[in-house]
Design a protein around this nucleic acid. Structure first.
Lengths: 197, 197, 197, 197
DNA sequence: GATGAATGAGTCTTCATTCAT
DNA sequence: GATGAATGAAGACTCATTCAT
């Protein structure tokens, strides 16, 4: 069976996710990605300009899917509380379902390297915008007390991010999804969301 | 003037903070640290076993000071709200006063490399414990509604962390300290802290 | 023309022989070997694990050939005296034909470094065994007076070794092969071999 | 107690003997020698121009003593056989009494490095001359059959050298001195020395 | 398009030697 | 004379990237 261009691109991206998660971006050799993807070293360069682009595309593609998934989940939500729950729930299940991706997102993307950071900031900004839209909308329909939207988004994203990192680094097999409701309660209170009726 | 052993150790640590912040840990050459510290390359190795140890010691020392500063600030606090404010205030002013350190702490320390992570986790855990103590104490004296302490700590640290990262990556010169009160309000509400009288 | 893997392996080994002979093992840079072999520095490491392995493989391969050559020469010998002559003759012509190899064998391989010594001892032991077999056989067919075989081997090998070193270090262009017969006479007398009829 | 200049020179030489024997000349750090000698690194350079000179002086001094010891032993010898026995006996007991020195002499001094070799050749040549004198004298008083003196010396020295190396590298605790008589018999026969009466 | 052998620039670390005290 | 902290040149080895097949 001949793998189509698209399939091979995906195979390399998946291999890179795993490889970066295991060794870290700088420590991981391109040849390791090639091995995991089942292609020759040189083949990588038919699909990506260089190692850096693999990380960037990886993040773009995965983050795109992630945001699509949340957006689609938000469609059926009627209250801000439900929307917030959807974000938390989708954020966490995304991480739980693909731990390698979680490692890359949580740990590996915080690089001081300016060129990497710039590349990463785009898709992340989309996610931030999405969260901010939900808050904005909540304020407009008076479900959320008037607050600094950016600060609120920092709290929401920061809390999810930290909870995920905590879970990732914990040696014990905790269930991240158990934290959905406790976190929802805290955040809802901070935003003055009306109690769940 | 003769630089004592202690002074030179500090000089190298300061140089490393700056160098890591500028290029990132893996991208930064040891010779750059040496140049910034005004010593020969080989001298570095009279004070540190290897490059990795520089990062580890850097984090240990700085985090130690940071926690000392917070603990000393907490002594004069009478309410949980004041304690929380002290944490936020000290966290942010620490970052503002030493932007290089902030970059290293926020970005560079999130490494997938297991040996680095392990080294970092110790001092960070001390900070987590400090935050959790404040929450615990708040619950005990009924200033904080009974909640999952770990989740609350994740929210507090996560929010501060994210706010700092946001500030760091922002191109504009925002004042991080302006966020102390908005964030305090959000977090206080989440913890059900009594209004500031 | 494409250099096959085998050919390139040989080229590197030959280059290393020359380089080690010229500068000594520790003084010789890997890049010098690469230059002499006409390959890039990194290529060396596709064929050898590290610098030490080059020396080890070099000795193994060359010593193997050397022993093969002697064994094949011994087949047509009818008396112990002839066998001894074959050993001396082959030993010396081997050295004369490849002075670089001689330098490496005589001088460079006497390293205190335990890991190097261990690696070298194997092939050398094969040569010792071969000499001892000839003596043993000579005793059995009563051409050699009963003596301590190991001591006899030490004398034979030691004499050849010393003669070679002497020749190597001599500034004048002596002909090592001129010593074949004088040495044969001395050794034959020591072993009580019957006169050449 | 103040160590005189001479005593400290000796201490460094002894420390170097041990250090070179343990790690080999190139692998051994000057600071190791200093530590073993109980002096500061810099002090070494008050007594020796550089690392190389330590090795050279070491060899000169020890070899000088060695030759003195043999010469003094030879004075009371009446026959060539007795003289040969004295050489073998002194050579071996010298090695047995100072194994570190033996390692240095046997293994470490065979360096390809031309400058080292040149330095070593002087004292060694003295030893060769001594052996050759004994043979010459033996021929003159008709105890030794007329032979090529240099070849005979190569046999004698080579045999002793090889026996010593064999003993050094043997893992078992063999007694080198047990080989004095077997070797004497072999060499005596090679030289046609009259039987021991 | 795919391969993987070859490349060679780049860097951490060692260690002989110096020199201010 | 003695010290040992500091120096900085040197080199083994890695690995992202290329390109002939």
């Amino acid at each position: 069976m001949i793998a189509s261009r698209e399939e091979k691109f995906q195979r390399i991206l998946d291999a890179a996710t795993e490889a970066f998660a295991e060794s870290g971006y700088y420590q991981c050799q391109v040849s390791k990605i090639a091995r995991l993807a089942g292609v020759a070293d040189g083949t990588i360069y038919l699909y990506f300009k260089n190692k850096e682009e693999i990380l960037i595309r990886l993040f773009e593609v995965r983050m795109g899917h992630f945001i699509d998934r949340i957006r689609s989940g938000l469609e059926s939500c009627e209250t801000t509380r439900m929307r917030l729950r959807t974000i938390i729930q989708t954020h966490f299940s995304n991480m739980v379902n693909d731990r390698s991706l979680a490692v890359v997102t949580q740990l590996e993307l915080r690089q001081s390297d300016p060129s990497l950071r710039a590349a990463i900031s785009g898709p992340l900004r989309d996610y931030f915008r999405l969260i901010e839209e939900v808050i904005q909308e909540g304020i407009e329909c008076q479900e959320v007390t008037p607050i600094n939207i950016k600060v609120a988004r920092q709290m929401i994203f920061g809390t999810l991010d930290e909870a995920t990192t905590d879970w990732l680094l914990a040696r014990t097999e905790r269930n991240l999804l158990d934290e959905v409701d406790p976190i929802l309660e805290l955040l809802a209170r901070a935003l003055c969301l009306p109690e769940k009726e």
